[in-house]
Design a protein around this nucleic acid. Structure first.
Lengths: 193, 193
DNA sequence: GTCTATAGGCGGATAGAC
DNA sequence: GTCTATCCGCCTATAGAC
């Protein structure tokens, strides 16, 4: 009935630009993404970036948050459902499906660095990361882990640091780390102490 | 006796440019460093970048490698001298002296990402990182650690990943991680197994 | 609300002076 | 060997058309 409205076109342009940004941040780096390259990838005219978004920064911010949010939320749900140690193993297996040089992995790293220089992004990312850390911590607490929050901090550092190193050495396997992390996540059930 | 030669001036210009690059990579990001900004910080004329270095990339590469090399070599020596677990603790204490948003910390992260897009830098950094990993591995092997290399990989991921996270949350303390890493680095001397 | 044309500044690299 | 003036392309942002 109602055909393609003016507003619909605007909505699609925004969506295309956000999708293009999510690809390009990883491919070219946060500072390597320009309005022109963005527009070319999204197949829209260059000027549209500044009509639909307050600034290039604002578009990049939104693209990064919208890319990371769902991934972290999904992983947090996995932590609620499965045993924490198994969930960590699943996340590490997931990392091995990436090369460390792919746009998805690099988007995360780029966003961490960009947050360092953009207070607005920093706050938004902080919320995302804090929620994920809380999910890991809660999962460990439910298994009576004696040092849940610190272990959560370590797990997250391992994951992101490993992605960083994998970019340099694609042969690295995250699966190797599973036994070590299991020692830290599993509650001692009948060993020393 | 011999005064200030032409060659000396060239040498100093190169040194100033490298030092400026080491500051600016962390401050502005790898792609945020321009020949003009570099020249201004080094107090030389813009064109000199392209006389003394093959390209802007080449200068950034050299600056990054020359900054990281000595730091990693020093840390590796520490690993040879002290007990591995104590050396790891010392390195974590060192991290807490930085905020995660300082140029020195960010230089490392920026270099990792840049290596992803620059094969020459990737190879040079790979050598640096592989040597450091070998030093950790050797230190653990000398203490009869059963899983030295994988533990080395994990330690390095924790360190770099933690720096990444600290940029987002400067209140994070690396010292908290010491007990957990000690469990992984110390050889089981009389517990389970 | 949607979009385009253009301004005005900054970029890396080089040809050629000293 | 050391350095500078300059080319020309790319950049973000905006004024104004539809």
């Amino acid at each position: 009935m109602t055909g393609r409205t003016n507003v619909d076109r605007g909505r699609e342009v925004r969506a295309r630009l956000v999708a293009a940004a999510q690809e390009l941040i990883g491919e070219l780096g946060w500072n390597g993404v320009s309005t022109r390259i963005l527009a070319e990838r999204a197949e829209v005219r260059p000027g549209l970036v500044h009509y639909h978004f307050e600034s290039l920064q604002a578009l990049l911010r939104q693209a990064a948050i919208e890319a990371m949010g769902p991934l972290l939320t999904d992983a947090a749900q996995l932590l609620g459902a499965a045993d924490p140690a198994d969930a960590v193993e699943a996340m590490l297996a997931d990392i091995d499906r990436y090369t460390g040089t792919d746009p998805a992995s690099l988007l995360f790293i780029e966003a961490y660095i960009a947050a360092t220089r953009d207070p607005v992004l920093r706050e938004q990312m902080y919320d995302l990361v804090a929620a994920f850390r809380a999910a890991i911590t809660a999962a460990l607490v439910s298994k009576d882990h004696p040092d849940a929050e610190t272990t959560a901090v370590l797990i997250m550092a391992v994951i992101d640091g490993f992605i960083l190193h994998k970019g340099l050495d694609p042969q690295l396997s995250a699966a190797r780390l599973v036994p070590l992390l299991r020692r830290l996540t599993e509650t001692e059930n009948g060993a020393d102490r």
